[in-house]
């Protein structure tokens, strides 16, 4: 294919991606170094209280926002360097917390709290998703043919459901004296409140995430299981391998590329965990990196959006993604080189 035709085919898509993905990235990068604030001016105000014989007058200097001709506050944008990053990272408090050796103090700082949750969430759900997905795939592969269709249908439901609503449906099972909380209280005989402390909320979020993503892993593993080489399996049996050894030494190596694929997709998606925070309304206990940016972007009570701090968190989130992707990208590049 000539370059010109290639460009004609790929052009529209590339333009969309450049305008709506690459350009915003650059603009976020720039924004993170600037701060937009209302302009304040110093005004001398003389206020008098009636008195006898003369009113007592006090002159004080007040700062108040400048109102423009259109009746709105005038704001100015100035270069602030790394200030937004400093505001987000709060390194002084981090130093103090580390100096005290106090973990809980460190976890009071929003950014580090969000980073801690995002990372633990990602790393804990990854093995669970892989194991549960593989388990379901093996069980379905083992089941009668006529059952497979319905099972796949039911399994697809958690995957396809709107994430916020999936989270809510789990939350409604537990909220207040929801049936599952009531069941656990009956079982243990103690009073349980699932939304009062961070770790139970985190556990529910992880449960939701595994419930939501395991079907995806299952479908892919199930497709992979159909292509396992039967001859290799048979020779393994002849060599005296038991079921576990066959799984360990024949099936899992065969599925390895799929495991890497699912792990990669899962890392990408989990790193931007966000909908769970909304669905479980957990912002007072648990927050994630993407939620932090979202929170800065939503207007506060005065209607201002903290764009520059949002940009700074967004850039810091990006750093994490880059670190995450270095290894798989290197691998893909090696494969590409190898295939030519």
């Amino acid at each position: 294919m000539k370059f010109k035709t290639f460009a004609a085919f790929v052009g529209p898509s590339l333009v969309m991606m450049l305008v709506f993905i690459a350009f915003p990235l650059v603009s976020v990068f720039m924004q993170s170094f600037y701060v937009t604030q209302p302009v304040f001016e110093q005004v001398e105000i003389e206020s008098c209280t009636p008195g006898f014989p003369n009113p007592t007058c006090v002159t004080e200097v007040k700062s108040q926002p400048v109102i423009g001709d259109d009746g709105k506050m005038i704001s100015e944008t100035r270069f602030s360097g790394l200030e937004s990053y400093r505001n987000v990272l709060e390194l002084d408090r981090v130093k103090a917390a580390i100096g005290n050796g106090s973990w809980s103090e460190l976890m009071n700082i929003d950014f580090w709290k969000a980073l801690r949750f995002t990372l633990t969430f990602t790393l804990l759900t990854l093995p669970l998703v892989l194991v549960v997905g593989l388990g379901i795939a093996l069980a379905v592969n083992n089941a009668v043919k006529s059952l497979r269709g319905p099972v796949i249908f039911i399994s697809l439901l958690p995957f396809i459901i709107t994430p916020v609503i999936g989270g809510l449906s789990i939350r409604w099972l537990f909220i207040g004296d929801g049936i599952l909380t009531a069941a656990m209280e009956w079982w243990t005989g103690t009073n349980i409140s699932m939304f009062a402390q961070a770790w139970t909320i985190e556990a529910m979020m992880m449960f939701y995430r595994v419930w939501h993503v395991a079907p995806f892993a299952f479908v892919i593993f199930y497709a992979g299981l159909q292509t396992v080489n039967q001859d290799t399996l048979e020779s393994a049996i002849i060599d005296g391998a038991n079921r576990w050894e066959r799984l360990r030494f024949v099936i899992v190596p065969h599925l390895m590329p799929l495991i890497v694929f699912i792990a990669l997709i899962h890392l990408m998606d989990c790193y931007r965990v966000f909908e769970e925070i909304v669905a479980f309304s957990s912002q007072s206990h648990v927050i994630s990196l993407q939620w932090l940016t979202y929170d800065f972007l939503t207007p506060d009570d005065a209607g201002n959006r903290a764009i520059s701090r949002a940009s700074a968190t967004a850039m810091l989130t990006m750093v994490g993604i880059v670190i995450l992707l270095i290894y798989p990208l290197k691998r893909t590049w090696r494969d590409h080189k190898g295939s030519h």
Binding site: F6, R272, T293
Partner: peptide, 27 residues
């Protein structure tokens, strides 16, 4: 070139959406 475009797309796929929205909103 096609390979690099695909890799670029893969990197774009990994971006958290809030990063992009932070870019759109002021504009």
């Amino acid at each position: 070139l096609a390979f690099w475009l695909l890799i670029l797309a893969l990197i774009f796929r990994a971006l958290p959406h809030s990063v992009l929205v932070a870019g759109y909103l002021p504009v």
